[in-house]
Design a protein around this nucleic acid. Sequence first.
DNA 1: ACATTAATTGTGT
DNA 2: ACACAATTAATGT
Length: 215
Amino acid sequence: MIKKEISIDLLAAQFPEINDLGLLSELKRYSEVIYATENKIIIEYGDQVTHVPMVISGTIKVSRQDENEHELFLYYLSSGDSCAASFSCCMVAKRSEISAVAEEDSILLMVPLKYANEWMEKYPIWRNFIFNMYEQRMYSLIDTIDRLAFTKLDEQLIEYLDLKSEAIKSSLIETTHQEIADDLNVTREAISRLLKKLEQSGKLKLGRNKIYLNN
DNA sequence: ACATTAATTGTGT
DNA sequence: ACACAATTAATGT
């Protein structure tokens, strides 16, 4: 990683929310500028968290490790974002629960936790900035959870249909969406919508009380 | 054949 | 998740 200087003007341009000369000059003074090339690992799972990253340009992919080795995508950080989660790590003084990798060539401002903390009291504008980041991250996490829950149900449903089809030795399953929903402990609407998608992708055909599987 | 009704499925917020 | 619309199958006349 190559380190370079960064101008206050550029900082102000990327983070209009923290337009305070005192804060900006402290930022410039105490934080490190990092040029991360594509696929550069910025924080690895288990690393000690020492800085709050602020993204000046580029995109950072934040993910969590599966029990195995599989990566679970959480969210992207792009220009003007910050990873406020770093704060929770520093308050509990623990190690990173996530890993962050540069998705493309990126420029980051790494703010030492010590200062990031002090500024919470010193600069209300900074505190607001951090709180806003928390809120944004929260929303993107909720989206991610939705996506996950949806994917799992998708697979569950296909497995359910395959099992049933095999059990009755027929590709014609006679049941209602409600019955399936009860079996899988989800709402009927979720099943209806999934089935329709599966129909559109050609995996099956729907009729009232009927599902024709295309093997 | 047609109207009525209940059950199932679809959609928007 | 909920409320409501639309569609479909069944039933009675």
